[in-house]
Design a protein around this nucleic acid. Sequence first.
DNA 1: ACATAAGTATTGTTCAACAATTCGACAAGA
DNA 2: TCTTGTCGAATTGTTGAACAATACTTATGT
Lengths: 228, 228
Amino acid sequence: MDNAVAALEHDRGRLGRSSTAERVADILRDRIAEGLFAPGQRLSEEAIGAALGVSRNTLREAFRLLGHERLLEHRLNRGVFVRVLSAEDVADVYRVRRVIEGAAVRNSPRAAPEAFAAIRETVADALRAAREDRWQDVGTANIRFHQTLVTLNGSPRLDETMRQLLAELRLVFHVMENPRAFHEPFVARNLELLELMEAGRVAEAERALEDYLDDAERLLVRAYTPHP
Amino acid sequence: MDNAVAALEHDRGRLGRSSTAERVADILRDRIAEGLFAPGQRLSEEAIGAALGVSRNTLREAFRLLGHERLLEHRLNRGVFVRVLSAEDVADVYRVRRVIEGAAVRNSPRAAPEAFAAIRETVADALRAAREDRWQDVGTANIRFHQTLVTLNGSPRLDETMRQLLAELRLVFHVMENPRAFHEPFVARNLELLELMEAGRVAEAERALEDYLDDAERLLVRAYTPHP
DNA sequence: ACATAAGTATTGTTCAACAATTCGACAAGA
DNA sequence: TCTTGTCGAATTGTTGAACAATACTTATGT
């Protein structure tokens, strides 16, 4: 029985999690991710506060949270705006991804086997979604692939950093008018990367990752600048 | 004169940066860094609000900011506490440092020459402080060495991540009762690392960094656990 | 057409109040 | 003695209203 009580320790994380401000932040984060609030759009305190039925003070706390996640931009005395990523921002995000995901690949020989199973699951999800023409879901699965890849580092902080980077990228994915053309080619490449790692061919995996990130970045910035 | 005006561009960053909440956060951040607020200590909204002459709402915004920087821990309905880093946290911080600083070293051949000058300056600062027995300042210079090292990556986001990591570490440095013994040996090793990079001997530099981080981490966790 | 000034809307900050939650103390019961 | 229930003080969570400060817009005068 003492043992059963000790087991509860594990569930403690689920306890604290609530507070109006955080729940408001969750809602807004989702809406931004799905593009309902477009980048550059201003979020009025009064309008949103009224819509969600929370006071301005509480809403401002939520804004602060999202501001620190770089999803909102706070301009003094002018309000909060959905973040607009510059081409330079996109380049920087990919710079960081190369560092963090590259480290994950290099660390893959020392990673726990369960982690690979989790990665394989995201590939399966992507393949299934692709078969059923759900290209938005393919994109989501691809994102989860890379999020899970980072867990090979075994570092909660790197996981959190990656989570934030991918949230930022979602701000930009909406400029791709053709989700299929953007997401489809990467499914096979993710699978290839996974199998290289499982085979212990680290150098090749590292190279595959580099190519992947180079291509993805190129596609994004091309769609981002007025086409030549 | 036109030139002088153009020079002002550089100071623009400091312009937007005001807002009572942010200034309050700046103050509290400094106090925490210098150990005036000890880890684990609770920060009362009423007491601190009264002391600084700001309202509870504004203070809470500042708390949120520092919470996101991981300097404060927010426990629902119980208040905010100065963060207490576990040994596991320290290990994770060093895990991330190995990734980010390692990438900086590997990228050093492609980095701008000015960056090396900035690094060399931090070493000079450390040497000067050591000569004058200012061991606290030696520690600060050492921290700046690594902060500057990361700029070799050329990524604002990695700079910011590093800034946050080092702020977290400052929470822990206070457990070292003998700052000289802790900081002194690392000055020479920083210099050695810098010179290896400048000579283009990347592999050796990488190795030196690994050793450095291993030793620093070991010293910290040893001081952190009740001695055997 | 252009600069200036007035007016409006929105954010920044404070204040006071009340609800919700935590925590310690103390009493009731086994 | 130990556990459990209850009370109450203290603190945080949230709200609503108010006013100041700032940005934006419109009107005004030259």
